[in-house]
Design a protein around this nucleic acid. Sequence first.
DNA 1: CATAAAAACTAATAAGCGTTAGTTTTGTAA
DNA 2: TTACAAAACTAACGCTTATTAGTTTTTATG
Lengths: 196, 196
Amino acid sequence: MAKIKASGNGSRKDAIIKKAAGLFRKKGFASSSMRELADGIGVEASSLYNHIGSKSELLQTICFKVANDFNMHLEAVESSGGNCISKLENLIRFHIHMMTAQYDEVFVANHEWKQLPEPYLSNFLSQRKLYENALVDMISTGIDQNEIKDIHPYVAVLTILSAVRGLEFWHSHKKNVSIEKLENDMVNHLLKGLTR
Amino acid sequence: MAKIKASGNGSRKDAIIKKAAGLFRKKGFASSSMRELADGIGVEASSLYNHIGSKSELLQTICFKVANDFNMHLEAVESSGGNCISKLENLIRFHIHMMTAQYDEVFVANHEWKQLPEPYLSNFLSQRKLYENALVDMISTGIDQNEIKDIHPYVAVLTILSAVRGLEFWHSHKKNVSIEKLENDMVNHLLKGLTR
DNA sequence: CATAAAAACTAATAAGCGTTAGTTTTGTAA
DNA sequence: TTACAAAACTAACGCTTATTAGTTTTTATG
């Protein structure tokens, strides 16, 4: 065996994907070169191709892994009991959790999906649309049951998803506030508003 | 004179910048080529250099034009009367307005600023930090004056800025809702929450 | 130690990139 | 019509890109 792995119990391929996620986040997919990625691992660029198929495949792996994690959690929440607001709260907290636990991967999936080639691009977009629609349904139900204000459901979904997405900016600022307070304050803001 | 302009009263340079904003939004800055941009205008790539300095200059122009528009409006709001909540509402509505009136440019400034070379990158980031700080101060004042809930001010700023930023997804969905209802629902959500 | 597989290496390819130089065409004004 | 400037063109430059082929080194297993 050889030098690429270094640590952990994942495969060499996993190590490459992890490094790629970090690089793609920092510089963007198109501005990241395979030579740069190889440098970060301590290997020649061509050596990477013993483990992966292509640069594009790296992006695909990252994006669909993230999409899958969100879909799995959504299913779990949907089939759980509880009212709409608590389901929404659960989802918001999961988004915040993912953003901190898998920062690079979530960031890349959020920013670089446009660079996916067909048919992966269409696949990714339709998965995201399904996810959004599930949240729209959840909010619509909440409105019907008088849990939630009369608001355009998609606007609310957009606001929530965009707000949690914005946690990507948190990484440079995380000194003063604990992640628990961040999570609680954001959930509270999104569900109960700012006005006293 | 020559063929590049086609319409309007802006210069040829302005026409190129406008086309570049559209292209950079659709494909990303790094994935957009000068040949592609020239194609969209109906000209050879080298002809562009009679009007612009470089590809990077196009990005700089777009990013700083947007930053400047936001800074100008912020100054106007800060020196206006009114309580904190109404100032915040004014700002949120301006963000929504910019996102619809200058979609390509705002999108590019939001997504591609990372590709700015130094010292423009540092300049852009410090302008954004100043903008964020102004909003943090605004919310802190609101908390002191009992207008706003006791929330971590930066979390609230992050939530608001991220939410309005998410309107970039609106362009594919704008059929069912008027921009006025969108604006009102989002302002209401961000200021007064979702829960009835 | 021998063998085989895994994973590294060197070298090269073809394509695309931003950009420049030099030249020709186009449009305006005298 | 002539003269000037603006803006287009063609052709090429040096560089970087992802990727492949072929070879050698490393590692694990018998």
